[in-house]
């Protein structure tokens, strides 16, 4: 389960990625943040951001709140 949830539903890319990039440095290392984002580009761009920034992309799921992406802060 994620440690916290970032609700970016209704936001168009790159806004969900920007929101994740702002939040991740503020959480302790090891924290899992779930990004809720219904823009289809988030499915590509959130994993790509994790790769470019060396953060860990855990999983993409579609739950009751729509598409969600779990990221762990690794550094």
């Amino acid at each position: 389960m994620p440690d916290e949830v970032l609700d970016c539903r209704g936001q168009r890319c790159p806004l969900p990625v920007i929101a994740a990039a702002r939040r991740m440095p503020q959480v302790p290392i090891g924290t899992v943040v779930r990004v809720l984002a219904d823009d289809p580009a988030a499915a590509v761009d959130i994993p790509a951001w994790c790769r470019m920034r060396g953060q860990e992309f855990l999983t993409a799921i579609t739950g009751p709140e729509g598409p969600a992406y779990d990221i762990r802060r690794t550094h």
């Binding site: 289809p40 580009a41 590509v44 994993p47 790509a48 470019m52």
Partner: peptide, 20 residues
């Protein structure tokens, strides 16, 4: 995606897994 009529990212960039 914001430049396409479907508002979806390019299927090519998506298939490659690169920033769209």
């Amino acid at each position: 995606s914001c430049t396409s009529s479907t508002l979806r990212p390019s299927h090519v960039l998506e298939a490659m897994g690169v920033l769209s």
